[in-house]
Design a protein around this nucleic acid. Structure first.
Length: 229
DNA sequence: GCCAACGTTGGC
DNA sequence: GCCAACGTTGGC
């Protein structure tokens, strides 16, 4: 996810395999992209998601704020890195997990996503980004030099998508995973908005949805004293 | 650095 | 299409 270069939450993973969800979702083209998307190429599926699946409008996206080298390439990309880019905007490339990809394909312009710092000293929610461009082809899947190159993905049927996110703001205070987890456990025991939060129930997913209740509750923590116990 | 959890691969 | 082996994620 970097504006034009950078990495995200290494979601590397040997992909290939069946496309679980939909077929190439309506890759929304934007200016500059010459490839004409032949009007859905007649696919019937398109924005799949089972009919019954709730449609989310808030997200959490993980990225690593500390240096880590993968094939000689540093995958570091924390919220400060996003903030430093021109336009404070970056594409979120490198996602190589079908569920995470499918969630990105559901994202709509204007929606908000928590920027989560993972695989670091203090994991947790650092800030908020806005989705500024809906899912389109992740070019890094075709780049042999890229850490997330996918030899099994073909140009005429790309497997991986990405969205563009723009820095919105830092959390008023960093929200550590440890604190969120305390709430999660508490809510799981006695009920509460974080009882089913994906961060804990689907720990390895790098792009995950939040219900409005979850999102609002997390936001409310900004104004509270850090939970201790 | 360890390792639990879990997604993916591939044999059958 | 099952499922064991394998590989990755990511907290600790």
């Amino acid at each position: 996810m970097a504006p034009k270069k950078k990495a995200r939450v290494s979601e590397r993973a040997v992909n290939s395999g069946k496309d679980d969800g939909e077929t190439a979702s309506p890759v929304k083209q934007k200016v500059g992209d010459k490839r004409k998307v032949s009007a859905e190429s007649g696919k019937s599926k398109e924005s799949s998601e089972s009919p019954g699946s709730p449609h989310y409008c808030h997200w959490l996206m993980k990225s690593e704020p500390e240096s880590r080298f993968e094939n000689g390439i540093d995958v570091k990309f924390g919220i400060e890195d996003l903030k430093a880019l021109s336009n404070q905007t970056s594409c979120w490339d490198g996602v190589r997990n079908y569920q995470a990809r499918n969630f990105m394909r559901q994202m709509k312009e204007g929606q908000l996503a928590f920027f989560y710092h993972s695989n670091c000293k203090e994991p947790g929610i650092a800030g908020i980004t806005e989705i500024v461009k809906e899912a389109y082809v992740d070019h890094t899947q075709f780049d042999k030099k890229d850490v997330h190159y996918d030899a099994t993905s073909k140009a005429d049927n790309p497997k991986w998508s990405m969205v563009d996110v723009q820095y919105q703001r830092m959390m008023k205070r960093f929200l550590p995973l440890s604190e969120l987890k305390k709430y999660h456990l508490q809510h799981r025991a006695k009920g509460g908005p974080l009882k089913d939060m994906a961060l804990f129930t689907r720990a390895r997913l790098s792009v995950q949805p939040l219900t409005t209740e979850e999102f609002d509750f997390v936001l409310s923590l900004e104004d509270k004293e850090p939970l201790r116990t």
